[in-house]
Write a protein that binds this DNA or RNA. Structure first.
Length: 442
RNA sequence: CGGGGCGUAGCGCAGUCUGGUAGCGCAUCUGCUUUGGGAGCAGAGGGUCGCGUGUUCGAAUCACGCCGCCCCGACCA
């Protein structure tokens, strides 16, 4: 993509309403635009990152055996009356009436709907276990939206729902998601820590929040230091094999959010293992048994022919919130520092002297070669000054910059800069092409 | 939902107290000069001053009502 043809409205100054760094940087980098309190348009750069995050979530859900569906944003109130939540949910639920005076709502979550889909189609225990998920917009009419996309009213969420024959099998489903979440966040360059959580109004007795540590996090968290750097299972992890090992390794160490905090237990840890930090909740998993299956009649025939009410769990990831969390965890004074896995482009190509036949030629060659090799290149071909281009490229945070200036090109050389470390390396044009064309990690 | 604050050009702001017909910086457009870390000079365009009602010869400015947005707290993916 050429910058001259792209839509990327950068801002030099920060809009007054943005208080936290991720919100400021997303606005300045032209990733989002606020349309109402807690409601945002996603501009091209933001849309690209959102898609990257979404895909990682999707890949890890699929890997763990969950199956993707897509449910609507609008739901019928009748469904929610069955579970009893239509009245219980309160003002956070956006209620809508259609032209026939039918009561509808913009879904804040989908337990009722997925249970409805399940009960109408699944009749035998032989079809279990089943885990269905979708990635869809949600609306929760927060009293006080804030922090940009971190606490919006409309947000993109991955929500998965597991169905099992008995509590023991449901716990296996729970552990699969637990491990999938560890991998999902790690792939985005985040250090996440699962913490025992209150099950809240959703009910149930087993729940973990996945917390990303960041100074600007909303909640105070406490955990054992070893949890932070603990390696996550690899891509070859066998979800049909031993799940308890990973699960127990994580859950045996102290980790709790403020509301679940046990000061005495925490204080019993060695002093150098006690970590008190701020955290951002990016995922939340629940096992809640038959809360919805019972009220909504989701039953299957068991091995002995009698009906069994299925055991359920739900597993959420705040996809749009993750973008804010990643920026909170990865930025510097100059702007965003994207992990390669979620960067809107793989690298930025800076032509320091557009209009100069030598730099234009070198840039065209690099751009064409890397694009042909499947790299997403953002080519700054504008006639802005060098300083402006450097500042813009740093702001939007692409992990690599290839800088093409007249002096270097005269020697057949370009400069490669790593956005995170700031390290620069001078390479020949061909070596630079080779470096990125063959780079396997993209 | 309690408390506080703010709505003036795309963004950041001054002007409001003390009413007289709107300004600064950045951005944008044109030209010239510049060209490796957000350039300089010259010129230009862009605003029903959030909306409504009222007071007044006259309202961005005063009064009343409404809407929107932000911050602190309580609540929450």
């Amino acid at each position: 993509m050429r910058v001259s043809r792209f839509f990327m409205p950068l801002m030099k100054e920060t809009p007054a309403e943005a208080q936290i760094v991720s919100h400021r940087l997303m606005l300045r980098a032209g990733m989002i635009r606020q349309q109402s309190a807690g409601i945002y348009s996603w501009l091209p750069l933001g849309k690209r990152v959102l898609a990257k995050i979404e895909n990682i979530v999707r890949e890890e859900q699929n890997r763990a055996g969950a199956i993707e569906v897509l449910m609507p944003t609008l739901q019928s109130a009748d469904l929610w009356r069955e579970s009893g939540r239509y009245d219980a949910y309160g003002a956070e639920m956006l209620r809508i009436t259609d032209r026939h005076e039918r009561e509808m709502l913009y879904g804040p979550t989908n337990e009722e709907m997925i249970t409805d889909i399940f009960r109408s189609s699944v009749k035998s225990y032989r079809q279990l276990p089943l885990n269905l998920y979708h990635i869809q917009w949600k609306f929760r009419d927060e009293v006080r939206p804030r922090f940009g996309v971190m606490r919006g009213r409309e947000f993109l969420m991955k929500d998965a729902y597991s169905f099992d024959l008995d509590p023991e099998k449901a716990r296996i489903a729970y552990r699969k998601m637990f491990i999938a979440y560890l991998r999902t966040f790690a792939r985005m360059g985040l250090k996440s820590v699962p913490m025992r959580a209150d099950t809240g109004p959703i009910g149930g007795d087993l729940s973990h929040e996945f917390i990303v540590l960041a100074e600007t996090g909303e909640s105070q968290v406490f955990c054992h230091r070893d949890l932070i750097e603990m390696p996550v299972p690899g891509a070859d992890f066998d979800y049909e094999g031993d799940l308890e090992g990973v699960f127990n390794q994580r859950t045996s160490l102290y980790a709790a959010t403020e509301e679940m905090h046990d000061a005495a237990a925490f204080g019993a840890l060695p002093a150098d293992k006690q970590v008190t930090a701020r955290g951002i909740e990016v995922g939340h998993i629940f096992y809640f048994g038959t809360k919805y299956s019972k009220s909504m009649g989701a039953k299957v025939a068991g091995p002995d022919g009698t009906d069994v009410t299925v055991e359920m769990g739900s597993y959420g990831i705040g996809v749009s919130r993750l973008m804010g969390a990643i920026i909170e965890a990865s930025h510097d004074d100059a702007g965003i520092v994207w992990p390669e896995s979620v960067a809107p482009f793989d690298l930025g190509l800076i032509n320091l002297k557009s209009g100069d036949s030598a730099t234009d030629g070198a840039c065209s060659k690099i751009y064409a070669a890397l694009t042909a090799a499947g790299r997403d290149v953002l080519y700054d071909d504008t006639d802005e000054r060098a300083g402006t281009k450097f500042a813009s490229m740093d702001l939007i945070g692409l992990p690599w910059q290839v800088i093409v200036g007249p002096k270097g090109v005269a020697n057949g050389e370009v400069e490669v800069k790593n956005r995170r470390s700031g390290e620069r390396e001078t390479l020949s044009v061909d070596a630079a092409i080779k470096r990125f064309a063959e780079r396997p990690s993209f």
